[in-house]
Design a protein around this nucleic acid. Structure first.
Length: 754
DNA sequence: ACAGGCATACCGCAAATATT
DNA sequence: AATATTTGCGGTATGCCTGT
């Protein structure tokens, strides 16, 4: 939608600098060969047509490569060869220089292409042109047509409950699917657009006159993007039902229906407004239930009804011992059964903190959400409110977890996300503390504060002028550490726990220390098993926690956690690549390299000569060219971005939204996306640079979560550190796995004995 | 063992941009 | 037009890997 700005690439503009560096001979700049190459490139459509939404894509379109690299390379090579034939061999260049030159020129061309098609460029283009285009497309068609077009041309929505044949149902599902896609696109639009633009688009979509815009602007103030989408969906649904009667017997316009639905939404209150589009959480899985239940029993908290119900008739109920079943049938109270079951899981009646290790994608978040729910309800039943702080290691995780907590709908609980953007201020903290303690019979308001560890640490540190810190750990009821393996040395996690340790002395029965629940998929990674044990003991010591492992081999865990197929591809430098290195590192050229790389490659990472790996990556991506939809992530070590500053937080969030949308999506990411990032349904993950630690290996592989079909593809280059690092990270993961298994076996043995 | 590079954060300030 | 919000950039911190 944004690629209408595709212009023919003037690749010849890049030739003079290459000639100046001596990579290309001067002869390459002239002659029929050059024109021939250009003609050939035009024929092959280097700049691909923007996808045409009207026409269902033909098979032909899908069989075309995403980028005609092979043709490009061959065309440039032909140009170089003919130039050489005309000018004679160049003695200054090593054998095979023309392959080198062709590769280099191809890479330069691709750089140009990539820059024009980068996500950043797409996002910028989408910010401006796409809106008007989409809005213009939405104006077509008659009653309801505007909204229908706005939401995509989905047919009958969920109202189609006739449910006849499979065909009909499939079509209804497909339509609902298309509508869901359109809705998510719309959501993205409303999130990124200003109120002004949103009103503009609504005016067009609803077929209203321009004068209504001011009115719309006023009315949609304070309505969340989710709310707007919800209203539009409701408007569409209402107009389909024919629910357009006006009080005076007339027929409501689309805009009229919209206003009515909007008022309905507003009367529902802000909270409902935010929750409308949020699907409720999936049912609790038995291992999540067991873990949460065990932790809560250890802490002596009263289990909430939600957990009790799941414990008695949930999916894991059959795992209750046979005698427990009998007792349940004998009329024993459900609570007692559940508590007995969870109590049996507790090692030695442990009442302290917990470190829960669970595989990636097994639903760690859900576990601490349920624990938080119980803490909140327990406080609530005694007329107060709970204060829960969730610490995460990266900014992007704060909003993600906050959204998840909102979905969980803890009773009487406000959820907030804090990081350097919207920092956790003294006012916000004091307000949360007051709300929690101001019970007074009516029940205090609980707060869940999701924050980066560093920003929370700022509140704990003494302020200048000898004033006491804003926050004290004893003010909160529950402290959750996500990705807790960061808790070591001087990391903010560790510093927070140092504060926790220092509060031990002042702990009384009236003001106990908060409970700590730490979760991670990869607690530590060490090459030596003995140092691994040491690290684990240190970690558990800092947390004051007992370790609970959720094994990947557990059948129910294995049923939900994807195990991607492991693919490895070893590449080695070819003569041509060595030639390139030789050319670039020759004495006469070395002074030009910085300028050349700055202009052409933006990275200067030429010493690695990553060409073979790049071709391997392209080849791998080609295997997906027939798919209309796929998602994948390519992990690289460095950012290769000349702007130096990466993406802002909001850009990251927008990008994540874009990536979640359907289509052909490849996300190229650094280690920032390794941990915790919730990117559903990735068919493949590519490691362009080998994982350096077992933690990285586990975390990045965990992003490939499309069941059954996911692949984890490692590109390893000989003669580099890739092989060593790959072996090291695998060894570290194996060590961790063995440690986990041993601990789980020991725990099972202890539980059996006691 | 230690410095250098690059990754991630945090904070503060000033310019740009959006909102009223 | 005035004000509020967002964004960009420099400075600082820590963790991890790498090369001397």
């Amino acid at each position: 939608m944004a690629s209408t700005h595709c212009r023919p690439i003037d690749w010849t503009a890049w030739l003079p600098p290459l000639v100046a560096c001596g990579v290309l001979p001067a002869a390459a700049l002239e002659g029929d060969a050059l024109r021939g190459v250009q003609a050939e490139l035009r024929q092959h459509e280097i700049a691909p047509e923007p996808p045409n939404p009207d026409r269902t894509a033909t098979a032909d379109a899908f069989h075309r490569p995403l980028f005609p690299t092979q043709q490009l390379y061959e065309a440039v090579l032909r140009c170089c060869t003919e130039a050489e034939a005309r000018a004679g061999p160049a003695p200054a260049h090593p054998t095979g220089w023309r392959f080198t030159a062709a590769l280099l020129a191809s890479a330069v061309l691709m750089e140009e292409y990539v820059r024009g098609h980068s996500t950043r460029a797409m996002m910028q283009a989408a910010a401006h042109s796409a809106r008007t285009a989409a809005a213009a497309a939405a104006v077509e068609a008659g009653t309801g047509g505007g909204v229908v077009a706005l939401l995509g041309n989905g047919g009958a929505g969920e109202a189609g409950s006739g449910g006849g044949g499979d065909v009909e149902r499939d079509r209804a599902e497909a339509a609902a699917d298309a509508e869901g896609r359109a809705a998510s696109e719309l959501l993205l639009f409303f999130r990124t657009a200003s109120k002004e633009e949103a009103a503009d688009r609504l005016v067009e979509a609803l077929g209203e006159v321009e004068e209504m815009k001011a009115n719309l602007l006023r009315v949609i103030r304070g309505v969340s993007p989710e709310g707007l989408v919800r209203v539009l969906l409701d408007t569409l649904e209402a107009s389909r039902r024919g629910d357009v009667q006006r009080a005076d017997g007339g027929r409501k316009t689309l805009g009229g229906v919209f206003f009515r639905e909007l008022m309905k939404l507003k009367s529902g209150g802000i909270l409902a407004n935010q929750l409308l589009l949020l699907p409720s959480l999936p049912p609790l899985r038995s291992y999540q239930l067991n873990t949460a239940g065990m932790v809560l029993c250890g802490w002596g908290l009263r289990l909430p009804e939600a957990l009790l119900g799941a414990a008695v008739d949930g999916p894991g109920a059959e795992q209750v011992g046979a005698e427990a079943e009998v007792e349940a049938e004998a009329g024993l109270e459900a609570r007692a059964v559940a508590e007995a079951r969870f109590q049996a899981l507790l090692p030695n009646g442990w009442t302290g903190n917990w470190l829960v290790q669970a595989p990636t994608n097994s639903g760690k978040t859900r576990i601490f959400v349920e624990v938080a729910r119980c803490v909140v309800e327990s406080k609530r039943s005694s007329g107060g409110g709970a204060l829960v702080v969730v610490l995460v290691p990266s900014v992007i995780l704060t909003s993600q977890h906050a959204a998840y907590f909102r979905r969980a709908q803890l009773p009487g609980t406000a959820v907030a996300a804090h990081s350097s953007d919207s920092p956790l201020t003294e006012q916000a903290w004091n307000a949360a503390v007051r709300a929690a303690s101001a019970g007074g019979g009516s029940g205090g308001t609980s707060s869940v504060l999701v924050a980066t560890a560093a920003s929370f640490l700022n509140l704990l540190l003494p302020r200048e002028g000898g004033r006491p810190p804003v926050a004290r750990l004893r003010q909160l009821d529950l402290l959750v550490l996500d990705e807790a393996h960061h808790c070591h040395d001087e990391h903010p996690f560790a510093q927070v726990m140092a504060f926790y340790e220092s509060t031990a002395a002042a702990t009384t029965a009236l003001t106990p220390r908060p409970r700590v629940l730490a979760v991670t998929a990869s607690p530590a990674s060490e090459v030596e098993p003995t140092t691994l044990v040491l690290r684990m003991e240190q970690l558990l010591g800092r947390l004051g926690a007992a370790l609970h492992c959720i094994e990947a081999e557990h059948p129910e865990v294995a049923a939900v956690v994807s195990e991607p197929r492991l693919l490895e591809r070893r590449v080695r430098l070819r003569a041509v690549d060595r030639g390139l290195m030789g050319v670039l590192q020759a004495d006469g050229l070395s002074s030009q390299i910085p300028a050349l790389s700055a202009d052409c490659f933006a990275s200067g990472e030429l010493k690695d000569s990553t060409f073979p790996k790049f071709w391997a990556l392209l080849e791998y991506l080609q295997t997906f060219r027939d798919r209309e939809y796929f998602h994948g992530i390519v992990f690289v070590k460095t950012r290769q971005d000349r702007h130096g500053r990466g993406m802002s937080d909001t850009e990251q969030q927008q990008l994540l939204e874009m990536f979640k949308a359907p289509g052909r999506k490849v996300l190229v990411a650094t280690s920032a996306a390794e941990e915790g990032l919730d990117v559903p349904s990735c068919e493949f993950v590519v490691r362009y640079n080998a994982a350096a630690t077992g933690i990285q290996l586990v975390q990045s592989r965990g992003r490939a979560r499309k069941r059954e079909v996911a692949e984890f593809f490692c590109i390893l280059q000989d003669d580099t550190l890739d092989l060593h690092l790959h072996a090291k990270s695998q060894l570290e993961e194996d060590n961790m796995r063995q440690y986990t298994r041993a601990r789980a076996a020991a725990a099972a043995g202890a539980a059996g004995n006691s």
